[in-house]
């Protein structure tokens, strides 16, 4: 059986989760040479409904295209966290946007206020998704920063490259730090506050 790494990116429609799913899939698939399947589900509305994007990553051919047990869940709101935390497998990890989540019914969690940081530090809430992508990339360990950077530049609108790269870098650093702390201290949660930046 192939070894799989499974990720779900979840939140509201309009938070840019489908986009970061595609970017992550291109980074691991096209620039890291791994096999990847990205799927998504969405409601009938273009904005505001529940949105989720899923990735299965492997070194071998991927048969079943949907996750069987999540290695990583990104929850960009409380509703998604509540809905999907049960799909995280043992040893899996949750990355949550603590701007919108205050209850964490999970064992291993990284809490980062992506949306608040994007708004306060970068002046644009809209790049919270790219920041989250950076954090997910670093925490998961399935992709290198350079690959992610390349994939981001490939997909974001012209003129927004610098802003998006800043967001990506910030997310990556926070993710790396969180992962290090989690491993080093054997802790079950890691909370990033704005002051740590």
């Amino acid at each position: 059986m192939e070894r799989r790494y499974e990720i779900r990116l979840s939140g509201y429609g309009g938070q840019g989760l489908i986009l970061i799913g595609i970017i992550l899939a291109e980074a691991v698939g096209l620039y890291e040479g791994k096999q990847v399947v990205q799927t998504q589900s969405y409601g009938p509305e273009a904005r505001g409904g529940a949105s989720r994007s899923e990735l299965v990553v492997s070194d071998q051919e991927i048969d079943y295209p949907k996750p069987l047990g999540l290695d990583l869940l990104l929850a960009m709101n409380q509703q998604s966290l509540n809905l999907y935390c049960g799909d995280v497998k043992e040893g899996g990890i949750v990355v949550a946007d603590s701007t919108f989540c205050d209850q964490f019914p999970v064992s291993r969690v990284v809490k980062i206020p992506f949306t608040r940081l994007a708004r306060e530090q970068l002046g644009r809430e809209i790049v919270a998704n790219i920041m989250a992508l950076g954090a997910v990339g670093a925490v998961s360990g399935i992709v290198g920063f350079e690959s992610l950077k390349k994939a981001v530049l490939n997909r974001v609108p012209k003129g927004t490259e610098d802003l998006n790269l800043k967001a990506l870098q910030m997310g990556w650093k926070l993710g790396e730090k969180a992962k290090r702390e989690l491993v080093k201290e054997g802790r079950e949660e890691y909370i990033i506050s704005a002051e740590e930046l």
Binding site: A25, G29, V36, V37, P65
Partner: peptide, 9 residues
């Protein structure tokens, strides 16, 4: 729908 919307290399 799964095959139509899934992304792969």
């Amino acid at each position: 729908e799964v095959v139509g919307h899934m992304r792969e290399k």
